[in-house]
Structures are given as C-alpha cells and as structure tokens.
Design a protein around this nucleic acid. Structure first.
Length: 556
DNA sequence: AACAGGTCCAACCGCGCGTGA
DNA sequence: ATCACGCGCGGTTGGACCTGT
C-alpha cells in the first residue's frame, strides 16, 4: 500500500506539503538548515535512494548530517523516520500475521502503548506500524462494542497469575508474563500497598471522575477528556514507574480502563442508569454530578474550570512520587484536593516516601494493565493476610484523619471506597468485558448489536449467558448509582457463570479487589444469588449528597 | 456513477532523555 | 550547573484508498 502510494508520489511528487517549502516548523531546524529550506511531506524514490546511499556509506545515526552531506532537503529527524520505518533492511511489509497480532495484543496487555518496546519483540516491524495497527484495532473494536482484549488474553493472564501465585506465593509477584520480560516487581510496592490500603477511602473519586469524563466523551466531546491526559502523559511519559496508572487509567496506556471507557461512552452512559449525569436533576445539576468532587483533577482538566489552577498546575508538573512529603501529609487538610487520576493511582502504588525511587522500575501495578490488576488483586489479598486485623479493628478513615469532624461519612465513604476503587473498577470492567466476548477470534467478531441497543447486558449475542431475572431486576437499580462498576462487575459475574474454573478465579480476584465487606456479596452474586441492594451501601443519592468537604476529609 | 463514511498509514510534531562541551 | 545537540518515543494529522449505499 505504501508502496503504491510512493510510486504514485514519484510520478506526481506532491501537491501540498512537499512543495510548500515554507511550511516548516522549528522541529527540523526551524524549517531551515543553513539557509536551506527543508522539505516535508511524502518521500520520493529519489530521496529514498539518496538516503539509502548515504546510510550505506556512513551508517545510521548522525541524521542531521544527512542533509548536510547528501543533498537531501530533509531534516535529520525526517530522515531517521524514513529510514527506520521504510528503508532499513529486513523490514517486513504487509499485514500482520495472526501470530504477530496475537503477540501485539499480549504485548500491549503487558506494556501499554510502548510501541518501540513492542516493536523490539516483532522483528521487521516498526513501532509506527504497530501503533497504527493498534489504533485501528481500538477503533474497530470500539465500534463493534467488543472488548479490547480477547478472552484468551485475559484468561491466560489470570490463569498464569493464579498458578504463579500458587507456586511462588503472593509476594513474589504473580506476573508470569512480566517476569518473562524481566520486569521487576519490587517488594516495596507491595509494602506500600499494605501501608496505603489504609487510605484507600481517598480512592473512590476516580471512577466517578472517569465516569463523568467518559460521559462527556460519550456525549461527543472527547476533547474534554483528552487535554489533561495528553498533557500529563507527555509530561510523565518517561516515568511509567511513577504513575503510568494515570495515563493508563485515562487512555491508551491502560487498555483495561480504556475498555471500560469505551464501554461507558458507548453503552453505559446511555443505558447504565447514569442518566442523572447527563440529564441532571435541576436541583443537582452539575454541582452534584460533575462537580461533586470539587477538587477533581480530571474534571477540572476536562473542560471544567479548575478551582485551584495554580496548585494544580504545580502538581501536574510533578509525578506523584515527587510530591513533597509534606504535601502528602497535608492532603487531608488541603482545601484543594490533590489531582485525582495520577495521584490516586500513584498514591496507592507509591512506596512510602522513604523507600526511594528505585522501587519504581516498571512495576506492573503501575502499568494499569491487565497484569497489574491481577497483581493488585493478589497484592491486596496478601496485604489482607498481614494487615486485615489492623484494618478491621482500628483502621477507619476516621482514624486516619485524626480529629476529623466528618467521621459521619465514614461508612458511606468506606463502602464507596471499596466499591469504587480504581482497582476494582478496572478489574471488573476488564473481566466483564473479557467474559462478555465469548468468541475466540483475536480480532473482529461480528457486532452483536448496536450500542444503542445495549442494555444492562450489553452484548447478548456475543454471549450465551443471559441475565437472570434477579439481576435484570436489580441491576438497573444499582446502576442508577454513581458506581458503574457495580453493573460491570455484576454483569461479568453473571456472564462468567459459564466459566467454572476461571469464574472461580475471577470471582476470587474480584472479591479480593473489593475487600472484605463486599467479597461475600460478590461471591454470592457469582453463585447466582441476586444482588442485595443493601450490599452496596451507597446509592447515588447518598453519594451525591455527601458533602464535598466530607469527601475531602478522607484524603490521605 | 456518485457520494459519504470508514480505514489505513506515512509523516509530522512535541517532548523528554542522554551526552558532551 | 547549564546549555545545545542528537536522538527516540508516542500522539496526532492528513490524505489516499476502500467499502457500502
């Protein structure tokens, strides 16, 4: 295809950019290199030949010298790109094979949008190719209402995780895949999780924010969601260990979240009982839906005015672990809460300030990816073994925030915190998606139904499982709450009933993720029991009526 | 045949990192 | 310590092509 294109270009070199020498920006030498106007746009075969010849003579590298010595009116960057993506030897052209596709999916589940690293696993393929393939895949599957990852990948990861944890113990890190990639899972991560579990009540904002943002996205303003994401992602791109969970949790680097995001935007917003966000009650309009969390980083960056722009700007510049320790200590009393998405994830995963940064190396937990969720589940489970007594006996948010006047909110907050934790959120979203796609092909499955047709059970045609009357009856009620996870989880659990062993594993994982209080409920649900409306403890009313200051009081 | 919408992909762009002066 | 430079990475864009109506 590109070949055809370039042949065509060779005949008619270009119309726009190529022949508009003045449209050069600063990235390639300010558009001029030594007074020479650099060319942009498609490469011609002549240029290719020049570049190939140059590289043969001088080797790769020193790309800026290419323009100087070869007569090419291209910036070094453009030369490097052309060489790397099209001219270098051993490049594989053509579509991806099934094996390659499978590998890409698996790699993306592990790495997220680390195209270059993925390309290293695919000889002859370029990061650009993989990126394009993946983006196309995302669009396709999003349109089709399919999960981003096929069930195989999810289940494989789960099974591997399960067996690995059984064999190695929890603290070894249940990441076969990751281990295969020589990823390190520093113990300090687990320690920090145990420590930080006490402050999980801070977490629940994330899903709500996500939902709001996703709803806005679903409402056709995807740009609402992106700017901050992009901004932070760029800022922190090279600090995946710090909190890729942020970028991941928001967009591409967290495929799991993205699955949920896609689902939310495509289906949930319209049918999951979140209409109160879209068509808020006049009395609660905006202030209680989108602005229910006044300090929401995501909200304030999602085309909503930031209440504390200055502070936020500062925090945006810093990876979460770079927050001054004093800031961490002050969060509970800040009038402006910390930025949410990044800080939430990072806070949970952050080692204690004294643990140093070396522990951050590619923690799977930090990735926000499939493995990370599994890891998280087991980590929390392990943490429970060590600290459950402490937590259950003495650790309440009220304990954390000493002298807080807002302990009245503890119960609701705790429940919501458990329920809405980004971990559970991602996991349930993932699992529901994974199971919902019963087909086994790696890629397309025929769209079972249009998005608008989706209801609680979104893709009936893709699954043989049907909602039980109980669930059908109860789920909409539950989902009128601001806890979309509820539905996803329940949907998953219901759908997962056909996967006995995996189901058990998944159920355990979910239960672990949800914590002690809810695990039994989830298991009951999984066993076919109807959802107890009391189990969730918090409906939209309670949540939305919770004073913002109360929510703030729970900040770590 | 014409058109619209979707898909694919090459190339651009901004940013961050590493290195050396 | 600072700056400039080279380089690589990931996100985005724009246009050609494909497909369905």
């Amino acid at each position: 295809m590109s070949h055809t294109k370039h042949e065509r270009e060779d005949v008619m070199p270009s119309k726009d950019r190529t022949e508009s020498p003045l449209i050069n920006d600063g990235n390639c030498g300010g558009g001029e290199a030594g007074g020479v106007v650099l060319k942009k746009g498609p490469w011609t075969s002549v240029e290719d030949a020049i570049l190939i010849d140059y590289v043969r003579k001088h080797g790769e590298g020193n790309w800026n010298a290419v323009q100087k010595h070869s007569g090419l009116f291209r910036c070094g960057k453009s030369c490097r790109l052309r060489w790397a993506n099209h001219l270098r030897p051993n490049l594989k052209k053509g579509g991806f094979t099934q094996e390659e596709e499978q590998l890409i999916i698996e790699l993306h589940a592990k790495m997220g949008n680390k195209w270059a690293r993925m390309a290293a696993h695919l000889p002859g393929r370029t990061d650009n190719e993989i990126k394009n393939y993946w983006n196309t895949r995302i669009k396709r599957r999003q349109r089709a209402g399919l999960p981003l990852y096929p069930p195989e990948v999810c289940l494989q990861a789960l099974q591997e995780s399960h067996s690995a944890s059984a064999a190695n113990g929890l603290d070894k890190g249940p990441h076969d895949i990751l281990q295969n990639n020589s990823y390190e899972v520093p113990d300090v991560i687990f320690d920090s999780l145990k420590v930080n579990r006490n402050v999980l009540p801070y977490v629940p904002e994330l899903p709500v924010i996500s939902a709001g943002s996703m709803l806005r996205k679903g409402l056709g303003s995807s740009q609402c969601f992106m700017p901050s994401t992009i901004y932070c992602q760029k800022r922190l791109r090279e600090s995946p260990a710090f909190f890729p969970g942020y970028t991941g949790a928001v967009k591409n680097e967290c495929p799991l979240f993205m699955q949920f995001q896609d689902d939310i935007s495509d289906k949930t917003a319209g049918s999951f009982g979140l209409s109160f966000l879209i068509e808020p009650d006049p009395a609660t309009k905006n202030s209680q839906s989108f602005d229910v969390f006044p300090g929401s980083h995501a909200l304030s960056n999602g085309n909503f005015p930031a209440s504390e722009p200055t502070l936020e700007a500062v925090k945006l510049e810093l990876p979460s672990l770079q927050y001054p320790e004093t800031d961490l200590g002050n969060w509970g009393t800040l009038s402006c809460p910390p930025p949410l998405l990044e800080s939430v994830d990072a806070f949970i995963q952050s080692p204690p300030p004294t643990s140093g940064l070396e522990s951050d190396s590619l923690s799977p937990r930090n990735s926000g990816l499939l493995d990370a969720l599994l890891h998280e589940a087991k980590t929390i489970s392990g943490a429970k073994n060590h600290a459950s007594a402490k937590i259950s006996n003495s650790s309440t948010p009220g304990d954390i925030v000493e002298g807080s006047n807002f302990n009245i909110c503890e119960t609701e907050w705790e429940k919501c915190g458990e329920l809405l934790s980004p971990i559970g959120h991602s996991a349930t979203s993932l699992f529901s998606e994974c199971i919902s796609a019963s087909g086994s092909s790696l890629d397309e499955q025929p769209p079972a139904e249009t998005v608008t047709e989706s209801h609680v059970k979104s893709e009936p045609a893709e699954s043989d499982h049907v909602l039980t009357p109980e669930i059908q009856k109860e789920a909409p009620i539950r989902l009128d709450s601001s806890c979309p996870d509820t539905l996803l989880a329940s949907t998953w659990l219901e759908q997962g009933s056909g996967y006995d062993e995996d189901h058990t594993i998944l159920t355990d994982a979910i239960s672990t993720l949800l914590g002690d209080d809810l695990s039994s409920d989830y298991k009951n649900m999984a066993a076919g029991a109807s959802i107890s409306s009391q189990a969730w403890g918090l409906d939209s009313c309670a949540w939305n009526n919770m004073p913002a200051v109360c929510q703030m009081s729970e900040l770590p």
